[in-house]
């Protein structure tokens, strides 16, 4: 059983390292943030599996804290750049040649 848990944890660690490719490539910051979010969940799972392997029940608390605070970085990400004024049209509907105020912000 312990060997099985360890193999599962190792597999998940490998998926994190593979997912890093998305952080490196991007291309947008949304992609990078999503990858970080996935790593958070995977990390929680690895911690739960390790708590069975290493027989350390306290690791469940660590996983709990990770799960609890997984959203903080994403909220900070939304504030980073912020959102345009309520009247702002979505980027997809803007004309390409028309330089708008919030385009300048970037």
């Amino acid at each position: 059983m312990i060997t099985f848990y360890l193999m599962a944890a190792l597999f998940l660690l490998a998926t994190i390292l593979l997912g890093l490719i998305r952080v490196l490539r991007g291309p947008g910051s949304g992609d990078r943030m999503l990858a970080a979010q996935l790593f958070g969940t995977t990390g929680v799972t690895i911690l739960l599996l390790l708590s069975m392997t290493l027989e350390t029940p306290a690791l469940v608390d660590v996983a709990l804290v990770f799960a609890l605070l997984a959203v903080v970085a994403a909220v900070a990400f939304v504030r980073q750049h912020g959102l345009p004024e309520p009247s702002g049209t979505p980027v997809h509907q803007r004309k390409n040649d028309q330089k708008t105020e919030s385009d300048d912000d970037r």
């Binding site: 949304g30 979010q37 994403a74 990400f77 939304v78 750049h81 959102l83 345009p84 979505p90 980027v91």
Partner: peptide, 9 residues
């Protein structure tokens, strides 16, 4: 939030 931000930005 990521989707919303991507949609507007």
């Amino acid at each position: 939030m990521v989707a919303q931000r991507t949609w507007t930005h």
